[in-house]
Design a protein around this nucleic acid. Structure first.
Lengths: 155, 155
DNA sequence: GCCTATTAAATTGTGCGCAATATAAATTGC
DNA sequence: GCAATTTATATTGCGCACAATTTAATAGGC
């Protein structure tokens, strides 16, 4: 549905920023991170650190690789991040006796206790939103994520 | 709809990673960046640099602030990024004569020429996908982004 | 058993993101 | 006009992300 002859409708330009789905993900992810920061700062956590805590609160003493598989992050990101969290007292890292290649990441007492403080974070962040709508979007995006990492393997 | 007595359905745990909409955005954004990287590397661009080029291909000679408003990035991110792009020969930065506070960012000849190479990037990245579906998702996410930055001002 | 291949983390180097601060130019008030 | 405020960019410091490489331990083939 061109407007006329060879003059291309600028709205059909494939390189228009507003046409890029990837940019909406990029912008939303950055903006969400900025929204969480002040809330998580009160728990002495950054946003990626909060995600690690979510993984460990579900199941303690996981390996670095298991955490990485869950969050789609590699050791280049996780190793220094986990060291910072260890320094903050949230968790401890120790080589697995059974398999010395592995490092088990375990919550400290304060790391476990922090879960109580974190319980209200989801509520704060979704306050005033339509929860049904957010959940529908979450399911849609979970499918996108699945497709993105399912396409390039991912056990 | 609890299963029994005081045993909470683990699926209702508000801190479950899979329940977090924010995580789906985070994971998708990271995975998308990883998918674009090898394609953009052939244009000598990173993903954020590609976004800057999209902005400048739409309208050349914009100020740092105008680019930042479009991408939701501040000068702490943009200034060094633009300097790297200048060093790569994609663009030039010069103080505005009218208002010496401003810095105008202009495409070089090779930066303009790079647009031809970039024209097929969206097609490569969306190959095999349902374009109607992607566009519906893009519109949904554009609304989310709008709500996220509309809530905290944004002129 | 021994050698090769595989697996798990750590390390290195580069490029973002962003809060906080600094610097400097334009605008406003009076 | 000139001080005070506002606006635009740069700088500093820290914490991710990630590709590529390295180191070390286990598993497999023979």
């Amino acid at each position: 549905m061109r407007t006329s002859l060879n003059a291309p409708d600028p709205r059909e330009d494939p390189l228009r920023l507003d046409h890029q789905l990837c940019f909406q993900f990029y912008a939303a992810s950055n903006l969400i991170g900025r929204l969480y920061a002040p809330v998580l700062a009160r728990l002495n956590l950054t946003y990626p650190q909060y995600l690690v805590m979510l993984v460990l609160w579900e199941e303690d003493a996981q390996s670095v690789g298991a955490i990485g598989k869950r969050l789609h992050l590699d050791t280049g990101t996780l190793t220094p991040l986990l060291k910072r969290m260890e320094a903050l007292g949230h968790l401890s890292r120790q080589r697995d006796r059974e398999d010395e290649r592995r490092v088990r990441v375990s919550l400290t007492a304060s790391g476990k206790a922090l879960r109580e403080e974190a319980l209200h974070v989801p509520e704060i962040m979704t306050r005033g939103q339509d929860l049904e709508e957010l959940d529908a979007l979450r399911r849609t995006l979970a499918g996108v994520v699945e497709a993105l990492c399912g396409g390039k393997a991912q056990a």
